[in-house]
Structure formats: structure tokens, C-alpha cells
Write a protein that binds this DNA or RNA. Sequence first.
DNA 1: TTGTATGCGTTATCAC
DNA 2: GTGATAACGCATACAA
Lengths: 304, 304
Amino acid sequence: SVSPKTRDKVEKAINELNYQPNYLGRNLRRAETRIILVILQNISNPFYSKVVEGIEDLGHKHGYTIMICNTDSESDRERSYLDLLVNRLVDGVILMEPEIDSEELTQIGNDFPVVQCCEYKEGTDVPHISIDNVGAGYTAVNYLIKLGHKKIGMISGYNRLLSAIQREEGYKQALRGAGLDYNQDLIKLGSYGFTGGLRATKDFLQMENAPTAIFAISDITAIGAIRAIKEEGLRIPDDIAVVGFDNTSIASMYDPQLTTISQPRYDLGKISMEILLDLIKNESVPQKEVYLEHELIIRESTIK
Amino acid sequence: SVSPKTRDKVEKAINELNYQPNYLGRNLRRAETRIILVILQNISNPFYSKVVEGIEDLGHKHGYTIMICNTDSESDRERSYLDLLVNRLVDGVILMEPEIDSEELTQIGNDFPVVQCCEYKEGTDVPHISIDNVGAGYTAVNYLIKLGHKKIGMISGYNRLLSAIQREEGYKQALRGAGLDYNQDLIKLGSYGFTGGLRATKDFLQMENAPTAIFAISDITAIGAIRAIKEEGLRIPDDIAVVGFDNTSIASMYDPQLTTISQPRYDLGKISMEILLDLIKNESVPQKEVYLEHELIIRESTIK
DNA sequence: TTGTATGCGTTATCAC
DNA sequence: GTGATAACGCATACAA
């Protein structure tokens, strides 16, 4: 509701002064920034990109800018990023790997919009969305059992993330369900990386009754395992079969191509954003816990 | 300079109200946010993580928070992220792959702290830091020539990034320097991805006088090339040698391990941040153009 | 050492 | 349709 004349005058002034609004003033006045922060461990993890894509697509549609911060698993850094929320510099946070304890998280989630995506802490009111990791572990191992494997090793994460513990549980359930014996030596802990998989597998191969199949906590770990197996002069899948996790792009690029569990990464991100938008609008969140379906992707590392 | 009594009173009030300062007010008043924005194409590119690490390490030391945004190569998104700088929501920007034209970039760089890192536009006053891509292309191809290869193909990027054009120039210089003939069919353009490398290589292998060595614009492209070569039943490096670029983690994980050109990624990030800090402090920038050394990493894909 | 007033840049409100 | 004013939360300068 402005007359064309004043509009002209204003626009001329804008051009003359090269005027750019100061968002700090605007945001202060409006009490919102329309920025969403995604806090993740490190962008080097290839798992995240698709998740972020889902977050971005929905976020942009609603006029939000998405920004990403790396914690490198340091809880202090995570805390300082969460402070950006508490101190009103961002409108909401999607937390991909909470390091701080559930008490602290609950506290923040009580007053500000936070959603946990993929990884989460138990015992908080902060909504979370992920796959059923017990079920996914079960799927992977049960598949190996159906292929005829009776001695199956697992390479898990030493960091004791909930997802890792749950996948181990799925592994155990599958063994029990098939009447196979489980013993502690069959789960080795390592980093999620290549060397973690490599070392754990070398250990496996030293065992007098070595596994004929390995279920790894991530694709990169699985590739480390494959390397170790090849270095010993063994063949995949003939001598040892390998299953990874996440279906990251490397899984179909490697030689042999990797059988793996696929998470619906785009939807994990998108639905996280959906819930976050509800929280920001102060609407009641329909579900505090959402679990999406996983999928077994069969490739060369388990079957010819 | 506050009496213990008032301090107590204030602290009690802080606790009672659960007071958290509003950074929007603070930043408005201080006219700074102490946030640096890193604008990159997509976090899925494994090249970036080490660069960001360098940026973060130095940035944190100076009390800055580092945030990352994905452009997905869309200039509109890049523009909207640069607006965050123009509109005072961030104190500086490190731009890893400028999409907007040099005029627009110069304009922004004139008024605000911007540094171009790795990729850059020519004809701007905006400082940039990178390796000498002509030299790097030369190093890679000259190495293949020294190994005895006379027919060398290159897989470059169709997006015509300056770095790609420069590496092609280095490729040509090396051929010329050795008195080898160059023809246009020996450079194929593709995406920087796996399929780009795969397809280009299949094309190469169809040629009646196919190359005995391939220089790829990225490690992932090189891996696509390797896949294509293997699928044709040829051996690496016996039948065809392959050189990649960037020395990303996959290079040492793949089978065969990949010979590649390593960029000093951490330092590229760190020095970008150094220059940016100078710009923010309004100090004169010693150098508008910085070039760091590259390094040839020799592995299994070129020599047994 | 404490209290108070002012302005950062914006937008919403209200009177005109 | 226009213009003036207040207030968002903070930090600074100055007075008490």
C-alpha cells in the first residue's frame, strides 16, 4: 500500500545509497532468523549428504536457510553450536549425533526446537527419527545365515553409539533365531573407518576357526575388511562374504561391489525437517519417535 | 569492576530467570557476529573436509564460528548465501567454487571480506588461494610420459572450471615438451563423478589406437576409469595406467591403490582463513594471489 | 562502584 | 497512503 511516486523515491534512494537491509536489526525486531542449523560429526562422512539434501529441500521451500557445523565428536563444540540456538542466532537445530547427555539435551529441547536425526539419545523428550537398527542388524545377518554361513563376525564401533549397540543386538537375535552360537570374540570394535575394518578383519583371519562372513558397521569399514581379505589372498565372496551399512556411493563403486543395508537418507532428513517446522510453529508434534524402513541391497560381496 | 554483592545479585537473577543473552541484540550493537561462512558446492565432495578443517582450526583460535552452506552449483543459492554477508549476518565468506560472474563478485568483495579458496574467478580483486593447476597437470602427465607412455588420454570436467582448463593446459604442455602429438579426441569431458570416468574410458577403449594411460580430473573419475578398464578385462597398470587428482581418502583405499596429485588441503583452508582474518581486520592483504605446492603420490595404478 | 540514558537498524503500530 | 514513534536486547558512555 504505497503510491507509485513514493515507491520510486524509495527505490531511487536504495540505489543511490546502495542500501542493504541489516538482518541483525530485522531479526532482532522479528525475533527470528529463519536459519536452521544442522549439527553433524564431520562432513567427510559420506552418509550425511543425502540427509542434508532432504533437510534443505523442505527447509528452502519454507524460506529457511540451512547451515552445517562440524563437531568432530567434541561435546564442547556441540554445546557451543547449540548455544547459537539458545542465544537466538538460529531458529532450530537438527542434531545428527548428540554427544551431550540426555539431561542437558532435554533441557534445551524443552525451550527450543531440536530434532535428533539418525543417531539419538534415549530418555529425552527431544523427538528423533531413524531406522530400526535392531531390525537392520537382524536383516543383514539373517541374510548371511540364509546364504548358509554359520560363523559370522561383526565389526562394530568402539564409540558405543546407540545405533551400533542396536545393530549388535540385531546380530545376536539373528544368530539365536537360527540356533547358531554366539561368542564375544565374534564382535570386534573399531573406528568406523577403513583401518578399523582392516585391523578387525586381520584379527578375524588369525582365529583358528575364522568367520566365513563379516557384517560391518559402515561401508568404509566393510571396504577395510575387503582389503584385509584380499591381502590374505582370499576371495570374496567365495571364501568370505562381506556386508556393509549405509549404501553410500562407494558401495557400488568398489570392486567387488558391496552388499549393504540402505537407509532412506533423503526421507530421514526431510521428515526431521518436517518435525522441526512443527516445533517452530509450536504445533504439537504428532510423533516423538519415527522409524523408517531399511533395505538390503545385494551386490557382489556376498553372492556371485 | 563490580562489588561482590551486586555480582551475587546479578548471578542469582541469571539463574532464576534462566537468562541467556540474545546474540542478535549483542551482534547488532557490536556490529559483528564472529561467524564465518564457507560456501561450497556440496559436502558430498570428499575434497572439502580437510580444507574446512584448516579453516576451522585457525578460525576457532580467533573466536570465530565456522558454518558451511551447499550451493549445489546453483548461482542463485550462492547469491543468497553471499547476501548473508552483505546483510551482516556473517563477518566473512570463504568461497570454494564461485558461480557468479567476476563483476558481481568484485562488487561484493569490494565492500565485504571474501576469499576464494581452490577454485576462483579471474579478473577480480578478490584474493584467491590455490595450487598451480597448470603445473599439476604437467606433473601428472609428464610422470606418465617418463614411464614410457606415448598415448595419454585425459578425462576433464564439462563444467569448464578454471582448474580443469588449467590442468588441460598442463597436459598439453607436457605432451608438447616431449614432442608427442596431441589431438582433441584425447581429452574427454564428463562430470567429476564415477560415471563420468566410466563412460569416457569406455569411449577411449573403443578407439582404434587407445591410450595406454589416463589422467583423470578427480579421484572418483579415475576410479570410474579403473572400473571401465577392469570390465573390459584389461589390467592396471600393465595395460593401462591411471592417475587421479586430489588424493582423497578413497585413493589409498581402492584396489588398485590410486596414483594421484595431492593438494595441500589443510593449508589451503588455513591460509584462506589467514587472509580472511586480515581482510576483516581491514589490514592490507600482503598477497592477492597465493599458490601452494602440489605433490605426486605414486601408487599401484601406475606402477607395480 | 552503581545507575541511567542512548543508539545500533529494523518493523509494527497508530494517528493523521 | 503517509509520517512519526516505540521497542526488540545489548553495550557503551557518562553522571551520580
